[in-house]
């Protein structure tokens, strides 16, 4: 499935994304209903999603077995209310069946679900965990007919950030064949539909004709070439604005200098410099090339 921009606002897509995440990190799904999940977390995932370092320090130094966390997640408001109600009823029934005093009853609270909406703390944590865990891969297609030879490709995914007083980002995915140096653009889209399996790097590295660092540098050069193909009108406009505002400020401060007392000259000059600095930080156009992911991919020679 292809998620496109800001799709996680859609409850269905969000649910699918979260499902795939928990599957990928080996969490156990305890309950699966419409727009609702209960998931038990492995310790390493628990640590990433629930930031409580002192708890873990205590558990680890005392050598205790941690109680695994169960996440109860509703993906829309009606489900949240419905499931909370259900858990309360179940809880009350269970409590009623126990012979305990009202004071003790107070100690037991019905579990509550959390709403996983766009921008929620949990979803943000999941996204951060995904980015951390999904930065690298070494893979080859799952279904290799026969014993075909694997050609190693170095793929790099990331984005350009175009920035002045406003910003815009564009994705890129490039790869270089480490055998013959061929560079392919939009690489990820070309291979995303192939089912992949992780493999040991030894299966690829022995065939390298070009070192990884050389491949990396070649890709950098290529990306800088790609940047130059991008439209520059936004940068020109921003530079023009910068110059105009600079002229404005220069005029103002120079006129201040004209009738200022001698001892004030320096402080006016310093202020002038400071204002120019703020201005160029606001308007000076910058392009950041941001590397997000790297992968070694073995593809059968065609």
């Amino acid at each position: 499935m292809v998620a496109s921009l800001q799709d996680l606002k859609n409850a269905k897509i969000r649910l699918d994304f979260v499902d795939r995440y928990f599957q990928a990190v080996h969490a156990t799904t305890l309950l699966k209903k419409d727009s609702y999940r209960e998931v038990q977390l492995p310790t390493d995932v628990d640590k990433e999603l629930n930031p409580r370092p002192f708890y873990w320090m205590w558990i680890e130094t005392t050598g205790q077995k941690p109680e695994p966390t169960v996440l109860r997640m509703a993906f829309d408001q009606p489900t949240l209310e419905k499931e909370n109600q259900r858990m309360k009823v179940e809880h009350d029934e269970k409590i009623a069946s126990l012979s305990i005093s009202p004071a003790e009853r107070w100690m037991y609270q019905a579990p509550k679900a959390q709403l996983v909406d766009y921008g929620s703390f949990l979803l943000d944590k999941i996204l951060a965990s995904v980015k951390k865990r999904g930065a690298f891969a070494i893979v080859a297609p799952k279904n290799l007919s026969g014993s075909k030879i694997l050609i190693p490709w170095l793929m790099m995914n990331g984005m350009f950030t175009f920035r002045c007083d406003m910003s815009e980002q564009k994705l890129w995915s490039v790869a270089i064949c480490l055998e013959n140096g061929q560079i392919v653009d939009e690489f990820y889209n070309k291979i995303r539909h192939i089912e992949m399996n992780p493999i040991s790097p030894q299966k690829l590295l022995y065939r390298l004709r070009m070192s990884l660092i050389d491949g990396f540098q070649a890709l950098q050069t290529y990306l800088e070439f790609l940047v130059k193909q991008q439209p520059t009108d936004w940068a020109e406009k921003s530079l023009a604005r910068l110059e105009q505002e600079q002229a404005h400020i220069n005029l103002y401060y120079n006129s201040l200098l004209e009738d200022a007392d001698l001892e004030k000259l320096d402080s006016i000059k310093i202020e002038h410099e400071r204002k120019l600095k703020s201005l160029s930080e606001l308007y000076y156009p910058t392009i950041d090339i941001i590397i997000e992911q790297m992968a070694l991919i073995g593809l059968p020679s065609s």
Binding site: Q6, A24, G134, F136, P198
Partner: peptide, 16 residues
Amino acid sequence: SWDIFQLAYEATQNSL
């Protein structure tokens, strides 16, 4: 690892 690599690509795409 490939599953989560794909998820990470989508996450980047989403935050674009």
